[in-house]
Design a protein around this nucleic acid. Structure first.
Lengths: 179, 179
DNA sequence: GCCTCATGTGCAACCAGTTGCCTATGCATC
DNA sequence: GATGCATAGGCAACTGGTTGCACATGAGGC
């Protein structure tokens, strides 16, 4: 149930509406956690019942009213407690790996096409992360303490994307398809 | 619903009981797909109704009878069709990344301990993969065509573990905790 | 004789997350 | 005027997966 905690982190950094949270999940945490807006609204509702967050309506001009959520003291305690819980192993599910193993039983050209697509996705995401890194952390050796966690997450995202990209290249080369 | 396809791949390589499949998921696909035995039994039942697999009971001495599943012709078609479907983006959920972002709001020592634990996990898994690689693919440049997919998946697993390990080291260094 | 471990299969309840749909406003574009 | 897009919020139905438990067998250790 760590989506709750991902939301708590986001709200601890800055209060936001459900809609804004959904967009942040597309960006900042992006690589390491994904959530649809439906899921976010659902969880926000439960979290408000549990007193981890509180909300108030904000009227806006030329766009619909929004409900802005803020973390409560209880929410901060819960978040701190979360950092003290043991961390389980990573879960990942890779369709692409299943397809690779299915090489002898499937359509080689289609699989190669999937790898190419994946490679392009990695390249695009990496470019986005590198742009963020250049903008927000121009000097990685001198990141302020309060931004260190966010920087390390971004750095991990870049590592993962580069790793994925190299793997795609290895696959394409092994399958005799250059580039 | 790619668990089905992961099972089909496994059965296409060799027929197996539910129990065996569960253990294979701990090992070979291991890094890229995880499944509990309950989940596997459930899905196997549905797959048999769908005629993708068929089973027969095998009596054994000194251990319980088992139900061995084999892929059907229809199952092979389904698997081939799967390789032709577009591959969506990878989904991963990293508790550790959430904890890192929670650095300013949580317990630094506990987070460092989690990273150390994660580092140890990566090292252990990597060692296991490298042992498999040395045993089954002593010469990576000359992997037989029918094992190429499996080798590339293993190679991807090693890459990911090495990447994770390096990330942990980067984090520990940034947090001023050597080793 | 009891306990634990490995083998082997399974159910029931629950929870998390996805899919598909719906509402509403205002701006910009065709 | 119609269409599409960004903002903003949400429900209902479903499915995939987890948790917790139960059953059964035989081997090996205390």
């Amino acid at each position: 149930m760590a989506l709750e905690h991902a939301i708590l982190v986001s709200l601890a950094e800055r209060s936001a509406s459900g809609y804004e949270l959904a967009r942040r999940f597309d960006a900042s945490i992006g690589h390491f956690w994904r959530a649809s807006h439906q899921q976010i609204y659902k969880v926000l509702g439960r979290m408000e019942s549990d007193k981890l967050v509180e909300s108030h309506l904000v009227a806006q001009e030329s766009r619909p009213d929004k409900r802005v959520y803020a973390i409560t003291a209880e929410g901060r305690e819960e978040l701190a407690a979360f950092t003290r819980t043991p961390t389980g192993p990573e879960v990942l599910r890779s369709d692409l790996a299943v397809k690779l193993r299915a090489l002898p039983f499937g359509d080689r050209d289609a699989i190669v096409a999937s790898v190419r697509q994946r490679r392009a996705d990695h390249a695009a995401t990496l470019a986005g992360y590198e742009a963020s890194a250049a903008r927000f952390y121009p000097d990685p050796a001198a990141v302020p303490a309060e931004q260190l966690g966010a920087w390390l997450v971004l750095s991990g995202g870049m590592r993962a994307e580069r790793g994925g990209l190299e793997w795609c290249d290895e696959i394409l080369q092994a399958l005799g398809e250059r580039r």
